[in-house]
């Protein structure tokens, strides 16, 4: 158990699927050899295949205290990184169209905006995903090299690149499939919750760049932090697939509005735009209570009152959304 735990809350009602977080992460961390196919942060359309595709049905995680089996996703599941033949077109003067190679057959955002059907109407929403920096990480337990550790000071889960031998038991164990194998280095890697930024008092790149301002960052155990308030005080944010048993520290405010039909303010539960069963699939049965709470807060404001929870979710400025403190003790080199 770490002394403190960094956490992130993402308000799915505000995500516009612009992938700015994805690119912020990619440019900062996975613009290296072997990392082309990796997206430590990705935004997938739900319902949908996800990335790697069908990750939510592959396996891993805990059941009755035991790690659950899982195959490794293949490159077809992630989607090969492709390049364009600019050289041939632009420098060698070949009169060919600029084409990607290898031929794209799947990819990180392959089924964007496809969504699903609710009776005769299409619906979808975006689900941004990073490593959940779990309290009970299956990856850590699965590593025979003890290369994965949870930082005592802030609960961030990282892979020691010196100890990692690329066995990939962690990838199998992670029920969220948020660890990636770099065949060039022969080691596995993952989201590091931007700990080098946090140590300097800067928030995670994905959160800093988010135009929808839907990400909240802070210590879960800090009563002043927005994540503490959203998760533990207002109780309007839930982890993804809680039944996988890893206790994620990334939480989601579920999509709750507007209803499919009817007047503004009528309950999503009367005529759900997003089928409630699907939200229960993703966030567990507590999602119903969370939506009820959110709707009560909304009603409060519609009647002229003030909702602390909704004011916080608006997240007007960085000070509201992020509570990041640089390390008090800097190591002097």
């Amino acid at each position: 158990m770490s002394k403190h735990q960094y956490a992130m809350v993402m308000d799915l009602n505000k995500c516009l699927g612009c992938q700015t977080c994805t690119i912020a992460c990619k440019k900062l961390w996975t613009d290296r050899d072997g990392t082309g196919y990796m997206y430590w942060n990705n935004v997938e359309t739900r319902p949908g295949l996800g990335y790697p595709r069908q990750w939510d049905r592959i396996g891993g995680g805990w059941k009755d205290g035991s790690l659950q089996p899982s195959p490794l996703p293949t490159m077809d599941d992630y989607g090969h990184a492709w390049e364009y033949n600019y050289e041939r077109r632009l420098y060698e003067g070949k009169k060919q169209p600029v084409m990607p190679s290898p031929e794209p057959k799947s990819g990180v955002n392959w089924d964007e905006d496809v969504g699903g059907m609710n009776e005769d109407e299409n619906y979808f929403f975006y689900l941004p995903r990073i490593c959940n920096h779990c309290t009970h990480p299956a990856c850590l337990e699965a590593c025979p090299r003890k290369a994965i550790y949870k930082r005592e000071e802030d609960g961030i889960v990282v892979i020691d690149q010196d100890r990692c031998q690329g066995y990939r038991y962690c990838i199998k164990a992670c029920p969220y499939k948020k660890i990636y194998f770099n065949e060039v280095t022969g080691k596995s890697e993952k989201c590091i919750f931007c700990y080098p930024r946090l140590e300097k008092g800067q928030v995670n790149a994905c959160a800093a760049q988010c135009p929808g301002r839907l990400r909240f960052v802070g210590l879960l155990d800090d009563p002043e932090s927005p994540v503490h308030k959203l998760v533990l005080v207002h109780k309007i944010a839930l982890p993804l697939f809680p039944e996988k048993g890893t206790q994620p520290n990334v939480f989601y405010v579920p999509p709750f509005n507007p209803p499919k039909r009817g007047n503004y303010g009528s309950s999503i539960q009367d005529g759900p735009r997003v089928p409630l069963d699907y939200l229960i699939y993703l966030f567990g049965p507590d999602v119903k209570d969370v939506i009820t709470r959110l709707e009560a807060e909304l009603k409060k404001t519609q009647e002229g009152g003030r909702s602390e929870a909704l004011q916080l979710l608006i997240g007007r400025d960085a000070e509201t959304r992020f509570h990041v403190r640089p390390q008090l003790v800097q190591i002097q080199l």
Partner: peptide, 13 residues
Amino acid sequence: ETRFRKVQTEADD
């Protein structure tokens, strides 16, 4: 970061 092309992971499994 100075190169236009990176060496890619061909397979992960």
